[in-house]
């Protein structure tokens, strides 16, 4: 059963006077099965971020539809969009996006507090997640006091604590050193093993190689996709990198 269905979405940006139109997404269709770990790859300007913003309901497509767990995003009223995002989606960003006014713990609680959950329940949810992510000792600290890798783990905890249907990750390793990146990617695949659906946008081959499927976007379209099958991370890495080379050199022939 697919949890996310993207049907032929288009996104056109027009300049302020309406003269110049830029088509960021032409015709994107794909679906994500429950429990899948999908990576979307593409170069800068390929439309990755636009796609992610539309999936996150932060932006509206010009045409086409996004259906999450049977619910069409364009049918949701603007007033309940924020709540929908809180309840169904978890976000991990490149720059962590932790609020510096909160402790790590409060940052993680933020979506639950906004949904009006009682403190006791929040605490119960946090305990196992914090243990899995290895951050119980950091909870009382402030973002500026911890390292980048620790911040990103806190951000993952914040994404997971609402038990979202889908975790959207936007270049999650972009601001991390290689050791912290490896750690985070290992966490992502562990979380995925437990049944969490993850959709990650990245241009790091290393990051993509932990996913179960990699889609390549170019010029606003899904250009190609490959499945891991029985490959090890190492083997999958090689295939992704080969594919990228192929796309970059001979891609235009299609």
């Amino acid at each position: 059963m697919s949890i996310l269905e993207v049907n032929g979405i288009r996104k056109v940006y027009s300049s302020r006077l309406g003269g110049n139109k830029v088509e960021a997404l032409k015709n994107v269709s794909f679906s994500v099965e429950k429990g899948e770990f999908v990576a979307i790859m593409g170069e800068s300007g390929s439309g990755k971020t636009t796609l992610l913003n539309i999936l996150a309901a932060l932006d509206k497509p010009t045409g086409g539809s996004v259906v999450l767990d049977g619910l069409n995003l364009s049918k949701i009223k603007d007033s309940s969009l924020a709540q929908f995002r809180r309840d169904n989606l978890g976000f991990v960003f490149q720059e962590f996006n932790l609020l510096d006014t909160f402790t790590i713990e409060d940052n993680i609680y933020l979506p639950l507090v906004l949904s009006g959950k009682p403190y006791r329940e929040m605490e119960e949810r946090l305990r196992p997640i914090a243990a899995k992510l290895g951050i119980p000792g950091l909870l009382k600290q402030y973002p500026y006091e911890v390292s980048g890798g620790q911040k990103q783990r806190a951000a993952v905890a914040r994404a997971m604590i609402t038990y979202p249907k889908l975790i959207l990750a936007d270049e999650p390793t972009g601001a991390l050193d290689s050791k912290a990146s490896d750690e985070l990617l290992r966490l992502f695949s562990e979380v995925n093993m437990l049944g969490q659906t993850v959709l990650m946008v990245t241009h790091s081959v290393k990051a993509a190689s932990v996913a179960g499927r990699v889609m390549f976007i170019k010029d606003g379209e899904v250009f190609h996709q490959i499945y891991r099958g029985d490959d090890t991370n190492q083997e999958f890495y090689q295939r992704i990198s080969d594919t990228l080379t192929a796309i970059a050199t001979g891609g235009d022939e299609k």
Binding site: L58, A82, R86, F91, N97, L110, P111, R158
Partner: peptide
């Protein structure tokens, strides 16, 4: 801060 709060789910 404005931007972050929005992404995390505040209207």
């Amino acid at each position: 801060r404005f931007g972050i709060m929005k992404k995390v789910g505040m209207t």
